[in-house]
Structure formats: structure tokens, C-alpha cells
Simulated scan of single mutants.
Amino acid sequence: MRDDEVYKLLSTPGWLLVPVGLPGAGKSTLGGRLVAHGLMHQHGILSTDTLRERLGGRRDWLGDEELVFRHVREILDARLRNGLTTYLDATNVRAVDRNYALAAAQAAGRAGLVVRFSEPKEVCRRRRAHQGVVYDDHVWDGLVKDLAEIDWNSLAVPWVDSAAVARIIADQT
């Protein structure tokens, strides 16, 4: 997607952004920038970390992923049906999660865009550890594997690199 097309999407209410990347890659930071630059309301950030904290007491709680994602899907569906701009702040490395969100946007007649975060895994893990979140090796390795298996050239939806979105926000606002 060209920069002007991305900015047009971000300037039109009701869009869905699906960031894809490891924990610590900067997904939440980009969501904050969108809010800070007036491109969305803070309540438009649908964060799995926030839901985990509310349901399990910690942002890194992995006690019931089915429950977390059931809530994510219910909230996402309602937001899209009501034309509300939404930033799905999750790793979104699993095709099933990305595809659900993008299909829901399409069904609601909303534009959807995938944002690829490609920070090195070592940098991401260090950032999360600095934030007090330490992943079990099998959980972390699974996320890394899922991300590495994404064939970006075969995605059926438009996508853009996170650096491009950050540049567009800075240049256009």
C-alpha cells in the first residue's frame, strides 16, 4: 500500500488495524501514537494484555487463552458492527486470529490493514523482560515460529511495515 492510501484509511472512521509481531516489538507503542496524533480514541485499542490483566490479574497471564480470545472476538465484532475504529493490540501471529479479525471487518463493511512488526526476537524478548514479563521458552519459541511461518507475499489482505505507519503518522499529522 502506498503512504497516501494508508493515511486515507487512517483518516476514515471505522477502520481495523491488525498489528502482527512478537511481544515487545512496538505494537502497543504504535497504538499509543495513533491516539496521540488524534487518529483514534484510546478506547479503540483492543488489547489482549489488558484483558489478561482484568481476567487473570497480570498482563502476561496465560491461564485461559480461550476466554481471552472469546472476549476479544465479542468486543471486536461489536466495535466493527458499530463502525468504531479499532486497533487489535495482540501478537496476531496465528493465522486463525488474524483471519477472524479481518473477516469480521469485511463482514461489517470496514477496511482492514495488517501492520508487520519485524523487530529482532532478541530485542523483543529483552524489552519484555525489562517490562517485567518473562515468557517460558516454549511459549516464546511458539510465537517466534508462528511469526516466521507467515508468508507475507501470500497474504490475501493489504499489509504495511510498522516503520511506514510510524512515518506516515509523523509526516501527516
Rank of each mutant, 00 (worst) to 15 (best):
A164V: 15
R58I: 00
K145D: 14
I75F: 02
G142I: 12
N82E: 13
A104E: 04
A104F: 03
G24C: 05
F117D: 08
E5N: 04
R33P: 00
H71E: 12
G63M: 07
I150L: 09
M40S: 04
H43Q: 12
I150T: 11
A156R: 13
S11K: 11
P120A: 09
R127P: 08
V6Y: 02
D49M: 04
V18Q: 06
R79N: 15
I169P: 02
N99L: 08
W152E: 13
D151P: 09
W159I: 11
H37F: 10
D89V: 10
Q131D: 15
R58M: 00
V139F: 02
A108R: 03
D3Q: 08
A166S: 13
T85C: 03
T50K: 07
A90P: 08
V160P: 03
L147W: 10
T91D: 07
G132L: 10
R79A: 14
E149I: 01
A163I: 05
A105G: 11
Q131F: 03
K27C: 11
H37S: 14
W140A: 14
G142N: 07
S162L: 01
A103N: 14
E65W: 05
V93N: 00
G31P: 03
E53K: 12
T86M: 07
L51W: 06
Q131S: 10
D97N: 10
V20Q: 06
R167I: 00
V20F: 02
L46N: 07
E149K: 13
V35Q: 01
E119P: 02
V96P: 00
Q106G: 08
R73S: 10
Q42F: 05
V160G: 01
F117M: 09
L67R: 15
T173Y: 00
N82D: 13
R126M: 06
T29V: 11
D49P: 09
V20A: 06
R59A: 10
Y87T: 06
A148S: 15
L102M: 15
I150M: 08
D4F: 00
E119L: 10
Y100L: 06
R116L: 15
G132S: 11
A129K: 12
L16G: 04
V20K: 05
T50A: 13
S11N: 14
H37T: 08
L155D: 14
T86C: 07
D64E: 04
E149H: 09
S154H: 07
A78D: 14
D161F: 04
L84V: 14
V123R: 09
A101P: 08
A25E: 05
L155A: 03
P120I: 02
W159D: 09
L67T: 14
L30E: 07
H130G: 10
Q42C: 02
V93T: 15
V68F: 00
G109Q: 11
H138I: 12
T86S: 01
V93I: 11
G112Y: 04
A90H: 07
